[in-house]
């Protein structure tokens, strides 16, 4: 009886999740009348804007990951080492982006950093790119912080630090050569998640008027019929790739640890 309901719930779920994936794949192949073809994909790949926006988003996600790591790793490390009393405050802040919608945050940016403000970031393309990177960093913050903090929990931060200090290492050396390598798996899995989030992000990029991949997909969707599902298949593959890489690093590290 239980098993019957279990299979029922599970198969219903599978059906619900598989149909849209099948639907978009099938639709994306139907561009040529009467036969399946990859025409829609060729059109997408021939479009210069696809490559421009995609590489723009790729660069921005790299920047986001770098900023995120520089921000989160030292902070999480420091809180564990010296400031356990600051932990609730930091955790509260890192959870805020899950509560405050992205659209509200970016709206705040636009009004706060406009051309007549104390920090006129939206005045130049570079400034806006920086602002967008910061926005993406806040979006990724909950995942990045949690991932790194969990990673730090598995190593003895205090002992490692004291050992390094007794050998004459400074703070930069400790962070870069001791702490970072030890939480590399956590950092990488946070990084791949960030990549998946940033590549498909629409709201912030659209409202800051930057030529990112998300707005490009939306634009194409509003004007074309067969390219959008092809794009969806590509986006799904990218997401799957990011998650796969994330699992791979985790599994790889477990394997390594088991061998050691």
């Amino acid at each position: 009886m239980t098993r019957f309901f279990a299979w029922g719930a599970f198969l219903f779920g599978c059906l619900y999740f598989l149909l849209p994936l099948v639907g978009m794949t099938e639709f994306s192949l139907k561009m040529r009348r009467g036969e399946y073809s990859f025409d829609a994909y060729r059109r997408v790949f021939e479009d210069q804007r696809f490559w421009d926006t995609f590489s723009y988003s790729l660069i921005l996600s790299a920047a986001t990951i770098v900023v995120g790591v520089l921000l989160v790793v030292p902070t999480a490390y420091w809180v564990r080492l010296k400031l356990p009393q600051a932990r609730p405050v930091i955790e509260f802040i890192t959870l805020l982006p899950l509560v405050i919608p992205a659209i509200v945050i970016v709206f705040g940016y636009i009004r706060l950093y406009n051309t007549s403000s104390f920090l006129p970031l939206t005045g130049s393309a570079l400034g806006t790119d920086i602002l967008l990177t910061m926005g993406y960093t806040t979006l990724a913050l909950p995942y990045m912080y949690r991932s790194v903090d969990t990673g730090l929990r598995t190593i003895d931060v205090t002992t490692l630090t004291e050992a390094a200090q007794s050998l004459g290492a400074g703070w930069i050396t400790i962070l870069a050569r001791i702490i970072l390598p030890n939480v590399m798996v956590a950092v990488l899995s946070g990084a791949f998640l960030t990549l998946a989030i940033v590549l498909g992000e629409f709201t912030m990029a659209a409202l800051l008027n930057r030529p990112a991949f998300g707005p490009f997909m939306q634009l194409l969707g509003a004007n074309r019929a067969y390219e959008p599902p092809a794009l969806a298949v590509i986006a799904f593959a990218i997401t799957w790739g990011c998650m796969g890489l994330m699992q791979l690093v985790t599994r790889f590290s477990k394997h390594e640890r088991a061998k050691a």
């Binding site: 099948v22 639709f27 629409f202 997909m217 969707g221 969806a232 799904f236 990011c242």
Partner: peptide, 15 residues
């Protein structure tokens, strides 16, 4: 994580 624009495309292609 497959939310946003491509998800909409997938459902338009299906439903």
């Amino acid at each position: 994580n497959f939310a946003g624009v491509p998800l909409a495309f997938a459902f338009i292609a299906t439903l």
